[in-house]
Design a protein around this nucleic acid. Structure first.
Lengths: 249, 249
DNA sequence: TGCGCTCCTTACGAAACACGGACGTCGCGC
DNA sequence: GCGCGACGTCCGTGTTTCGTAAGGAGCGCA
């Protein structure tokens, strides 16, 4: 129940798009705040903007963020204090914005438990990358939701997977790949899509994907030579079919 | 059998290939413009090249681009102003070309709302990657919307097609062809039209289209010898008839 | 009816593609 | 140090798909 005294503070921030996160940006310089918000928004995240520490705390109370981008230098309560108080409530991921070469601040920020930091002046693009990197590491509960389809169960929190009740011994990549397929059933993904979504690479040898799909099939499919779950869509990529219909004659 | 190269010139570009976009390149240095255009063209995009701001605006008025590659330093109206004016009309994605280390320009560009920037000197390949990254972020994949007509259903996201509930085993080209017809029911398209829209080729052997239409008919029509869905319009081309009325006697 | 043009049909060679097997490297635990 | 598993890469092979050619059928017109 905070009082939005500034128009900019009242940035509504609806729900994030699928794959996106709710990000709270705490920054008193309106220019920087604007640029950062725009970039994060474009990257598919829902952005809350506030200008000082107290507002940040109250906003977080209303809408707990998946991640906080926090300027170290703030009027009144400084970034470190904000970070501490947020952390006192729950272990939210934090990325600090610090002045260049301000070694002490950097150390301090990391001591308080920032997950990453970016020095000013910074590239907004870099910030977005760091945000997504941190999100990948700290992956919020939506990605920890258990999944199940076609006799397969995947528990991302425990990193366990099973087929018809029997536990599967999957490697890291195989697990991520299977989890991704279960999250997006019935859709075709090109090898490049998978490399981007599962590996996090924008380019690379696409045969890597092929090989990992094969290894995954070897563990998941009844008959790996005739896959029914992870189908090949010729010339396009792969698709996870929960239905698993029989082959056409 | 390699694909014919698209015309790479400074003239107004034709329609982009299916996966490509219409890109407006605003750059006064002819060398840079040439290299950039060539690379984007090779990547399957339709490139419009102009040398200054006013021309960019008028060109955009004629053919609104999917994305703009904009040099920040232009004679007369500078890049920022061009960006502002374009944005005033519609939120087109913009990638800025800036001088290295020109921090102020970079920030300025981002304030105006550039989606990304590349610092000179740059690798043309990197630019292409950024263009496609921005397009991925900004382009709503409306072409993934499911389609249905005349007992046919086509789901581009899953790349599945069915006739009266029975799944059709279509090849890549057949699928794209059918999807195109379903997107444009009741209109006649010449073989050249289809070759351009579905294949993305500006020229080539038109009998290729004929053969693929025949193969598609073989899988889609009740009686391929007397097609009711994909009609031949003599001397014109083909037309998809959702009504599928019987032949006149 | 015959002619010219368009469209259909079939067949074939070649390219593109997916797959399986195997190899080298790296990191980790023993 | 040594062995092992995970991972990324490469190569040979079988299959699918594609584009083109060539002959036959159908349509429109004189």
């Amino acid at each position: 129940m905070q009082q939005p005294h500034r128009a900019e503070d009242a940035a509504p921030a609806g729900p994030p798009r699928p794959g996106g996160a709710r990000v709270l940006v705490v920054e008193d310089d309106p220019t920087v705040a604007e640029v950062v918000s725009r970039y994060l928004d474009r990257a598919g995240h829902a952005v809350d903007r506030v200008e000082d520490g107290p507002t940040a705390l109250s906003r977080a109370a209303v809408h707990w963020p998946d991640l906080v981008v926090l300027d170290l230098m703030l009027p009144g309560m400084d970034g470190l204090e904000v970070c501490r108080r947020l952390r006192a409530r729950a272990p939210v991921p934090v990325i600090m914005l610090t002045a260049r070469g301000d070694e002490d601040d950097r150390i301090l920020g990391l001591e308080v438990g920032a997950d990453d930091y970016v020095t000013k002046p910074f590239s907004p693009r870099e910030l977005v990358l760091r945000v997504e990197s941190v999100l990948r590491r700290t992956r919020p509960r939506s990605d920890l939701r258990p999944l199940a389809a076609a006799g397969l169960t995947v528990d991302p929190a425990a990193r366990r997977a099973a087929k018809d009740g029997d536990e599967l011994a999957l490697t890291l990549r195989e697990f991520d790949l299977l989890a991704f397929f279960l999250r997006h059933p019935g859709r075709v993904f090109s090898r490049a899509d998978l490399m981007r979504e599962v590996w996090g690479w924008d380019f690379g040898d696409l045969s890597t994907v092929t090989v990992h799909v094969r290894r995954l099939r070897g563990k998941v499919e009844d008959d790996p030579a005739r896959p029914r779950l992870i189908r090949t869509v010729w010339g396009m990529g792969y698709r996870f079919d929960p239905e698993g219909q029989a082959e056409l004659p």
